[in-house]
């Protein structure tokens, strides 16, 4: 009790000695987590699928994206692969690590590096791109790549989702690649290199976390790239039936 009383005396004395102008606001720092930027993360497999081609080729394909960060700065790891099941080889394997910042209400800019490590020669590129939502709900991802040799190329991905119902979704995606210089070693000619067009019908089975789909994918090579492929007796055009699932968590 005496201890409490002495405390009171001290605090009363204290409030006399220190001017009361030392107001409340300066004293309690804002320690709410709300005052820190909200940090979020997410994992999305836009594609995780088995492909069967019109000439009996079988592929395992994924296209995924992991992000961590705030509204102002996100780090994103994008990974894409095409694994030929019979050959047991990666026809394509691409990993990007980019930093992403908002540049307008609906678009982000990103910059980083891309490592291509498929079967055959490897490549490392610097990446500069924008990603976001264009009017009429087109999701756009456009990138510029420069490799250590100075070869430049660009890629444009566009996607549109048509809601047949609130659970059955038909999504159309087009990816196009253009090279501004030839990189014969990896089979890339100057000009329009290739397009991949996909149409997938999905059903949201578990929230938006697990959405199985079926679809068709068309791949085509153009111009010099097609010539190179033909010279190496590769195909220049493929149709695939696909089955897979979109995953998000």
């Amino acid at each position: 009790m005496s201890r409490i009383r002495s405390l009171i005396t001290v605090s009363l004395l204290g409030s006399m000695v220190f001017p009361t102008a030392v107001a409340a606001q300066e004293m309690i720092a804002d320690t709410t987590s709300r005052k820190q930027a909200l940090t979020s993360w997410g994992v999305q497999f836009e594609e995780l699928e088995y492909r069967y081609s019109d000439d009996d080729e079988e592929l395992g394909v994924w296209s995924a994206d992991f992000f961590y960060g705030t509204d102002d700065l996100k780090v994103r790891w994008l990974t894409k692969g095409e694994y030929a099941i019979e050959e047991q080889a990666y026809e394509g394997l691409e990993n990007q690590l980019v930093a992403q910042v908002p540049i307008s209400d609906f678009f982000d800019a990103k910059a980083g590096v891309r490592f291509d490590t498929p079967e055959g020669p490897d490549r490392t590129y610097a990446v500069l791109g924008i990603t976001g939502l264009a009017p009429q709900w087109f999701e756009i991802d456009a990138n510029l790549y420069v490799n250590e040799e100075g070869d430049t190329s660009a890629g444009l991905d566009a996607e549109y989702e048509l809601l047949l119902t609130n659970y059955w979704i038909l999504s159309a995606a087009v990816d196009a690649t253009v090279a501004f210089s030839e990189d014969r070693e990896i089979g890339v000619g100057k000009g329009l290199v290739s397009t991949e067009t996909g149409l997938r019908l999905s059903y949201d089975l578990v929230d938006r976390a697990f959405s199985p789909y079926i679809g068709v994918v068309h791949e085509r090579k153009y111009g010099d790239t097609a010539d190179i492929a033909e010279a190496e007796s590769g195909s220049t055009e493929d149709w695939f039936a696909v089955i897979g699932a979109r995953i998000a968590f």
Binding site: S11, G14, S15, T20, A24, Q25, M27, D30, R34, L38
Partner: peptide, 29 residues
Amino acid sequence: AAGMFRKVIVEGGPDSTQAKTDVAIEEGG
């Protein structure tokens, strides 16, 4: 949580409440 939030500070006020806030703050600081 996404940011539609503000802190409001009321400056001034009776001395008695001021003394009380100082005590509370010392404890919570």
